[in-house]
Amino acid sequence: MAKFNQTIAILILALVSTSAQAEEPLAVVVNKANPVNEISRSELIDLFMGKYVAFPNDVKAIPVELKGEHDIKVEFYQNLVDMPLSRVNAYWSRLRFTGRKRTAVFKPNEEELIAFIIANEHAIGYVPQSLITEDLKVVYILNE
């Protein structure tokens, strides 16, 4: 019986943990040296949807994306523009295959994405709040 209770407790913990991870706010971060301290939601949409790829001070930005169908990427776009990744991909295929916009920089995981932002003053990306380090500056919080 004790073993059964232990198993139930582990399952509940796992569920709570998964739920907490899914609901963890996403932080939009830039290089610490970037003079921009905050960014509005509409500016963020313009920036990640390729409409106006610049910071509020009109300095050109370099958006950094996670490659493929990463959970964080799905959550980011669902929160930002209320679109599933398929529609975001459809939207971006218009910009990319007409040559209207330069493509973003893609990284395979959060660690490499963070490393790129730390190394590039004009980079901007999104990570779970728990991964924020002192080398990053948070300019917007999604899903707070």
Binding site: N89, A90, Y91, S93, R94, F97, T98, G99, R100
Partner: peptide
């Protein structure tokens, strides 16, 4: 060489996934 921007979709009408 760029795509013609005559009407709304003329630039990407062949990218069927996009619409």
């Amino acid at each position: 060489r760029t795509a013609p921007d005559l009407f709304l979709l003329t630039e990407y009408r062949d990218v069927d996934f996009s619409y």
